[in-house]
Structure formats: structure tokens, C-alpha cells
């Protein structure tokens, strides 16, 4: 039971991080129908900014975190204004490839800054409890993971309120339903696009911090963790925020349970799935779900006249 709870905690904390990346992706897709592959890069760039401010410039960590998140949001806004805006109306494939280019560009610049040594975030989490962890009823809980869970839940609640109550949130929803109708109602769609990228950047920066915080450190390979959020988006449905969250939970828990139970299960059935199965398993689940729900669990079904 302890092992099960431990695996569940690990899985949920992974899910929290994945959901931050996934929601950013869905927001962009809903507003612009753009497949953005730049989210993982934005996540690690956010972590890089936080590290640079906290460690290199000696700014207190909490202020550095705040500034890093805001600056990454502004970076998202600038990306939309400079790279994406001219691509409005262009084929989906072209825009998707452009975002891959942005991903490579951001990571190349970041990698040259990272250099040989991993970068610290300067956060206080590893100093809490037992190197950043506390045992509750035999289950080991990391403060950083707990913070990721709480942050993800808070951000999801805030986003929900924002979309339902605020002027710009309602405008974003209108834009996602029908851009032309939204423009006819006087909504500045271009501004909405920029706002969406800014929010996606902010979410990515939080995810980047939770991936690299504590003793995880930021290295040239950190983005791979953020990349693992991508199947969550497909599972949930490209245009569904609840879907992104549910997809992230499925991916996170799958990874957690496989990590802790693969060996025992293999001994039980006398068959080995091979090393690295915990990373492959989410994709297998994705394939199975897509067979039965091609639009994802919560994605809007597409109806085409033939």
C-alpha cells in the first residue's frame, strides 16, 4: 500500500507539471489552431531566466521566480508578435514547423548559456525537511512536488475564473469559438492571440521551474521532461483544457505506476517489457485512446460534410 501511495504521489506531481505545459498548448490551439512545439523550450527558458536572476544576479529567489515567470510570458508575447502573426492564414503544417524552429532557436541560445555545469534555481525547497522531503504515513512527499500540485491547481482555478468572469477571458473564449464573429463584435483578435501566448509562457515558466527546481537542476536535457507532456494533450483533446488536465493525470500516473510496479509485474507474468517502458507506456495509452476516441477524451468531435 505504501508503494502504491508513493507511486500515486509521484505520478500526480508529474501530472501537475505536465498539465501546466499542456494547458498552454491547448490555449494556443483553441485560440489560433496552431500546433505549438515551442512550449517545452519556453519552459526551460523560463527556468533559465529564474536561475540567471537568482544565482547570477543575486536577486532573492521569490522575486526572481516572479520576474522569471513574467519575463517568460512577455517572451511568449514577443514570439507571437514577431514569428506567428505573419503566419495567420497559412497552412497548419507550416506554422507547426515554424514553432519547431522557434523551439530549436530558444534551446540553442539557452544551451550555450547553460554551458558545462547544471544550473541551480536557488530555491529553498531542498532545505526543507529531509533534503526537501517529508514522510507522511510512510509516504515520502517532496515539498517541490507538493508545491507543483498546489500551484497547478491554483492556476487552473484562476484560469477558470479568468475565462468566465474577465473581459479578456470572455473575449478569448469568443475568439476560440469563431474568430470572424469575434472580430465583428469588436474584439481585437490580434491582442487576444498575444495574450494567449503570454499566458502560455507564464504556465510554461512555472512548469520549467518545477522541472528544474531543488536538486533537479537545469541542464541541456531538461526540456525532455516538458516534452513528455505532449501525449497528454492528444489524450485529452487538442481543444479541451479539462482534457489537458485529465490527459496529464493519465500520463503522470501511468509513468508513476510503471516506475514502481514494472519489475514486480514482469516477475509475476514472466515477461519483460524492457527498460524504458515507463516512458513508452503513455504513448501506448495514447494510441489505444485514439483508436476509440480519435479527437481525444474531451476533444470536440469534428464533423465534415462529404
Amino acid at each position: 500500500m505504501i508503494i502504491f501511495l508513493q507511486a500515486t504521489v509521484e505520478g500526480l506531481s508529474l501530472a501537475a507539471i505536465y498539465s501546466l505545459v499542456a494547458i498552454g498548448f491547448v490555449l494556443i490551439y483553441k485560440a489560433m489552431e496552431v500546433l505549438s512545439f515551442a512550449q517545452p523550450a519556453l519552459a526551460v527558458v523560463g527556468a533559465g531566466i529564474i536561475s540567471s536572476l537568482a544565482i547570477d544576479r543575486g536577486i532573492p529567489f521569490w522575486l526572481a521566480l516572479f520576474l522569471g515567470v513574467i519575463l517568460t510570458g512577455i517572451l511568449g508575447l514577443l514570439i507571437e508578435r514577431t514569428f506567428l502573426r505573419p503566419m495567420v492564414g497559412e497552412p497548419v503544417f507550416s506554422v507547426a514547423v515554424l514553432t519547431i524552429g522557434i523551439d530549436i532557436l530558444l534551446r540553442t541560445v539557452l544551451d550555450s548559456w547553460i554551458g558545462i555545469n547544471p544550473k541551480y534555481m536557488g530555491d529553498p525547497f531542498p532545505s526543507y525537511g529531509n533534503f526537501g522531503a517529508v514522510k507522511l504515513g510512510g509516504v515520502n512527499i517532496k515539498y517541490l512536488e507538493l508545491a507543483a500540485l498546489v500551484t497547478a491547481i491554483l492556476l487552473i482555478i484562476l484560469l477558470t475564473i479568468f475565462f468566465r468572469k474577465s473581459k479578456y477571458g470572455i473575449a478569448m473564449r469568443a475568439t476560440s469559438y469563431d474568430q470572424e464573429a469575434a472580430m465583428a463584435q469588436g474584439i481585437n483578435v490580434g491582442r487576444i492571440f498575444g495574450l494567449v501566448w503570454m499566458i502560455a509562457g507564464i504556465l510554461a515558466a512555472f512548469a520549467g521551474f518545477f522541472i528544474t527546481g531543488g536538486f533537479n537542476t537545469l541542464s541541456q536535457f531538461s526540456f525532455i521532461s516538458a516534452l513528455r507532456a505532449l501525449p497528454a494533450v492528444v489524450i485529452g483533446g487538442l481543444d479541451s483544457i479539462p482534457g489537458a488536465v485529465v490527459g496529464s493525470i493519465i500520463i503522470g500516473l501511468t509513468q508513476g505506476y510503471v516506475a514502481y510496479y514494472q519489475l514486480s509485474f514482469e516477475s509475476l507474468i514472466g515477461f519483460s517489457f524492457g527498460n524504458g517502458f515507463s516512458v513508452v507506456a503513455p504513448y501506448l495509452i495514447m494510441f489505444v485512446i485514439l483508436i476509440f476516441k480519435p479527437d481525444g477524451l474531451f476533444g470536440t468531435e469534428e464533423v465534415e460534410r462529404v
Binding site: V88, F93, V234, L238, D295, T300
Partner: peptide, 20 residues
């Protein structure tokens, strides 16, 4: 942009796998 969700999912899946 045209709503090409299914094509998008396929494209996304393939590119995600390639990236991973």
C-alpha cells in the same frame, strides 16, 4: 485557419514522437 483537428492530431502525434 481551417479547422483541421484530425489532421492536426495525426501531425502532432507524429512530430511529438519524432521530437521525443
Amino acid at each position: 485557419m481551417k479547422p483541421l483537428r484530425k489532421q492536426g492530431i495525426i501531425l502532432f502525434t507524429v512530430l511529438a514522437l519524432v521530437l521525443v
